[in-house]
Each structure stands twice: as structure tokens, then as C-alpha cells.
């Protein structure tokens, strides 16, 4: 077989492979970014906050008591019941106190849930948690979560306590 023909075959095979790969690429790019999507729950559900808290209860417990050394209690949590901005950012991007002096959480950090939850869902679950287990903090509006999501749209890493203190000071 002449050499140009072999080259042509090799080139065409490569192109074919690339086309095949492109045709079957997973659409993960469509999931990238932090743009809100249609939520998992009906936004008009009166029990939205309670239901969306299912995202949190695996670590923080249905009773808000947490797991020692792994996930802090939400009952009487100052981060949860403090400034709404900090509470919203923790759910959006996560929380990492592993390098905080004296932290009880040396190897456990919280990942963000901004890609799984809409702003309305985050506001509702925070409002629920801020009024449960003895907590008595005021409700958080979806707009407050949206404001944090857009203000820190390029953020993906969990927040350190020092960063949150600087933002909410």
C-alpha cells in the first residue's frame, strides 16, 4: 500500500475516533458552575425547609445534635443563628475549621451544597434550622441567599471561620 494511503487511513481513523468520542461525551459541562436549576422540591411546599433539611441530617442529625468530632451540633450553633450571610455561605460553599486553633474538627470539613439546592431551598432549610432545637433566629429570605451566590459566584472552596468573620464583620 502506498505511504500516502496509509497516512490517510491513520488520519481518518484518528478523526473518526475523535468524532466518536465527541458524540458520546457525557454532558457534565452542562452541570458545571453554580447556576441554580429547577429545584428538587415544589417551592410552594409549606414544609420545604423541613424537607430540604434532609440534605443536612446525614451529618448534623435529624435532632440537630451532630456527631462529635465529625459534624457540629446545629442546636445553639453560633454560625447557624448568627449573620444570615455566613449561614448562607456555609451551605453554598461549605465550611472548613480544620486549621482553626483549638478546633474540634481536625479532619472533617463540610462541602458546599450550592449545586444541589436552589436559593429558595437553602433559605427554607436555614429558616427551619434557625427555629428548631431551641434555636430562635429570624427567617432568611431566598434573596439573601441569591445575593451571596452572585457576590461569590467564582467561589468553590469551603470557607474558613476567619474568612467568614471578615465578611460579616
Amino acid at each position: 500500500m502506498p505511504r500516502p494511503a496509509i497516512i490517510a487511513i491513520v488520519l481518518l481513523s484518528l478523526v473518526g475516533g475523535a468524532v466518536g468520542a465527541w458524540l458520546s461525551l457525557p454532558p457534565s459541562a452542562a452541570n458545571a458552575g453554580s447556576a441554580p436549576f429547577a429545584g428538587s422540591w415544589d417551592p410552594a411546599d409549606p414544609r420545604l425547609g423541613e424537607k430540604a433539611y434532609v440534605m443536612c441530617q446525614g451529618c448534623h442529625g435529624a435532632d440537630g445534635r451532630g456527631v462529635p468530632g465529625y459534624a457540629p451540633a446545629l442546636a445553639a450553633s453560633r454560625w447557624l443563628t448568627g449573620p444570615p450571610e455566613a449561614a448562607a455561605l456555609i451551605v453554598l460553599h461549605g465550611f472548613d475549621s480544620t486549621s482553626e486553633p483549638g478546633s474540634a474538627y481536625v479532619s472533617s470539613r463540610m462541602l458546599g451544597h450550592g449545586r444541589q439546592l436552589t436559593d429558595a431551598e437553602i433559605a427554607a432549610l436555614l429558616t427551619h434550622a434557625r427555629a428548631s432545637w431551641g434555636n430562635q433566629a429570624p427567617a432568611i429570605a431566598a434573596g439573601a441567599v441569591s445575593a451571596m451566590r452572585s457576590r461569590f459566584s467564582s467561589r468553590s472552596a469551603p470557607w474558613s471561620p476567619a474568612e467568614l468573620r471578615a465578611i460579616t464583620r
Binding site: M1, P2, P4, A5, A8, I9, L12, S13, L14, V15, G16, G17, V19, G20, A21, L23, S24, L25
Partner: peptide, 25 residues
């Protein structure tokens, strides 16, 4: 390029595309 070579090349292109897509699937 002889016609037979072109035909073989075309078949290879289709086969490669199918193989990759099938593997992914």
C-alpha cells in the same frame, strides 16, 4: 489514492467512531 484504499479508510473511520462510542456507552 486507489478506490479500494479509500473504501478501507472510510470503513476504518466508521469502525473507530463506533468502537469509541460503544466503549463510552
Amino acid at each position: 489514492i486507489p478506490i479500494i484504499t479509500t473504501a478501507v479508510a472510510a470503513i476504518l473511520v466508521i469502525a473507530a467512531a463506533w468502537a469509541v462510542s460503544e466503549h463510552r456507552r
